[in-house]
Design a protein around this nucleic acid. Structure first.
Lengths: 255, 255
DNA sequence: CGATTCCTTGACTATGCTCAAGAAGAGTGG
DNA sequence: CCACTCTTCTTGAGCATAGTCAAGGAATCG
């Protein structure tokens, strides 16, 4: 465990300038000089595996993070003991920002599988941002984008119909996969039905039935965690709740 | 309408240093010198009345806002035409940050009654933040706090039971009233049942029934928009879903 | 290959939505 | 100041959607 593994060291040495996620991540839009100043504070942590926590609720704000490989979820445990999933964090997406408001993390970040993160010590980041306006601007932007994702979550949860929430979830995930350069219509879900349910404010059975329904209707093909989107337009239409292509629910008028 | 009203002009001239909301607002924790640099960019807009929009979805990011008097709601219109309420903004709370991620506003901000706002042109704010580290820090903090409120919204919407959502809403609102120095257990709701419902992902009838139920159970006293919280502890307990003081729902075992 | 976890599907139930009508407030003008 | 109107709120009855409980099947891991 403590013995140095050459391959890992090589990866740890990788810089932002070489990173495939550069376009998506904090360095986006920064010039070479600025990036090198940013690189000075970026730390690459040792790889994590399924279930590992990056931080827990109550931990003081030390750093913000971006997954370079693998997917994370952030979860909040309600007083009644239920686990609510606040978000899923794909490679290139900044997370851990929940501690900026109060100085303490409000949630826990957990790796959904093997993962690797870049850690950006917050105090360093903020002080460099003072010196490098383009980084400050970029930092505000990514924070804003993170807030946009939270907003999308609110948007999903505001939908009354479970089918709408599920369609929005898949549609949004597909979009995000495209953005990170991965197939948008054929992927393996990194999270369980239960985790999806806890993200959507539903129970896992409802999510499962929702998936089956989309399969029956020929909109997706699903087998376990493998998902293929066959009809993006129809999926998008379901997102709007009202009738799009197929009727969203067999009403008495149809039957 | 266009004639100058002395009283209003006097108010418009008021500075951050004199503002009663100083402790809550952006200037919190800044010294006199820094505040004066901030004041240079703050603009006080002419008063708004019920229904007036401050910005609309699609508008470019010009400024961020803080209500100095009155309450605002931010709303998003879904493709199917429904209005979703994203948040209510009390005096001292920064809003309009939704445009930071993309450069465009994602939602519309509407005054719920007579209101007055301070407008902070974003470009100015960001450039001063570069020069004044304490403002940068403060700016990041308030953005973080705004994200915390969004997170609280997610938390509310994740609850399955309507009664929990309603209890959390009242409990949270009460908290925020206390923070701005107003009575936390006796207030007039600035928003309608319908707006509450659209915030909670429910319909107005459900909200109305929820309020009536809390009244019956002796936890609150409600008459129209006037609310008095009689038993904060019980309200907090309902927030947790599980049984607290009174049973949350009369089950057959009880009747 | 066995054990465990995860997913699917069914039957039943309950919560909250729909539709509907009436009461209470707020605003307006005589 | 009161009558009128319009909006907002309350309450009721019935129904549909999603939750609960339960069991069996698929997939994954050691």
């Amino acid at each position: 465990m403590t013995e140095p593994i050459p391959l890992d060291l090589a990866r740890l040495r990788r810089t932002c300038a070489e990173c495939s996620l550069q376009m998506l991540c904090l360095p986006a839009g920064m010039d070479a000089e600025d990036i090198s100043r940013l690189e000075a504070v970026v730390q690459r942590r040792k790889p994590l595996t399924k279930g590992d926590s990056l931080f827990r609720a109550g931990d003081p704000l030390r750093a913000v993070y971006v997954a370079s490989e693998g997917v994370f979820k952030t979860v909040m445990l309600s007083e009644s003991g239920e686990e609510h999933v606040l978000g899923f964090h794909l490679p290139g997406e900044l997370f851990g920002l929940d501690a900026i408001g109060s100085g303490k993390h409000r949630c826990e970040a957990v790796a959904l599988g093997d993962a690797r993160v870049c850690e950006l010590p917050y105090a360093h980041l903020a002080s460099i941002a003072t010196q490098v306006p383009s980084l400050q601007h970029q930092l505000l932007r990514v924070i804003g984008q993170s807030a946009d994702r939270d907003q999308d979550h609110v948007d999903v949860l505001s939908r009354r119909q479970a089918s709408e929430r599920i369609a929005m979830f898949l549609h949004g995930l597909s979009d995000r996969y495209r953005r990170i350069g991965r197939a948008a219509d054929d992927f393996v879900l990194p999270m369980s039905r239960d985790e999806i349910a806890r993200y959507l404010g539903l129970v896992l059975e409802t999510v499962s039935r929702g998936f089956s329904r989309l399969h029956e209707d020929g909109i997706i093909e699903v087998r376990g965690r493998r998902v293929r989107i066959l009809d993006v337009a129809a999926l998008g239409a379901l997102t709007h709740g009202c009738e799009g292509g197929q009727p969203p629910q067999r009403r008495r008028s149809g039957g």
